[in-house]
């Protein structure tokens, strides 16, 4: 079994799903118009990822190799349905603002990629830690993106107004184009620091 701490660090920093692997882009761009939405989406995805990783890891010797992808998808879709019901029951406001993107967690390539690359080859405990690491990495990335967009676009952080009312809001940043710009600039900044470190 691999070192749990190493697995966590791997998911959060070394192979961060959003900034390094660049997968699971649709929810990343779509729901990060505020920090709360971003973190809510990140945690929902993380919950599905951890459960799916655990089950796929437990079933890895039972699932025939040739039909593994459909099997993985059914496992993932089941957990997404569970999460959807829980959100509807306990957090209806968050469920309403995430809307369509909750059922679409099924097709988040991050979850399928971890099932294929990690959970189907490793034991259940490693798989759980991989799920936690990747899930947290995804949540942090979405949270940061949401924070930046909410701050520039609406002048608030976690729905609390921080910029004085006289300060102009760039509404574009909470709309569709702002998502592309923010992520592009964040990635470019990370690239810049990485290149500098190497040089």
């Amino acid at each position: 079994m691999a070192n749990p701490l190493k697995l966590l660090k791997n998911g959060i920093i070394d192979e961060n799903p959003t900034f390094v692997q660049v997968i699971g882009m649709c929810p990343t761009l779509a729901v990060t118009s505020s920090a709360i939405n971003g973190i809510g989406m990140g945690l929902s995805t993380a919950a599905v990822l951890i459960c799916a990783n655990l089950f796929i890891s437990l079933l890895r010797k039972v699932i025939p190799d040739k039909v593994r992808i459909p099997c993985f998808i059914v496992v993932i879709a089941t957990f997404v349905t569970v999460i959807e019901f829980m959100l509807k029951a306990y957090l209806p406001a968050l469920n309403a603002s995430l809307g369509l993107y909750i059922p679409l967690i099924v097709v988040n390539c991050l979850i399928l990629a971890r099932a294929e690359a990690f959970a189907s080859k490793n034991g259940p405990i490693s798989a759980i830690f991989d799920g936690i690491g990747m899930g947290l990495g995804f949540t942090i990335a979405l949270g940061v993106l949401g924070l930046v967009r909410e701050f520039i676009g609406a002048g608030t952080l976690f729905d609390i107004t921080v910029l004085p009312a006289a300060f102009p809001r760039t509404l574009l940043f909470v709309m569709a184009p702002g998502a592309f710009f923010t992520l592009g600039c964040l990635m470019a900044a990370l690239n810049y620091f990485r290149n500098k470190k190497k040089a």
Binding site: G178, F180, G184, N191
Partner: peptide, 23 residues
């Protein structure tokens, strides 16, 4: 193009501009 923007960052900025056009 600036080195830090190569690949994905530039693609995302381009998509952002297209998105403004479609607005």
């Amino acid at each position: 193009t600036p080195k830090a923007f190569d690949g994905f960052p530039l693609a995302l900025l381009t998509a952002g501009l297209m998105s403004i056009a479609f607005l």
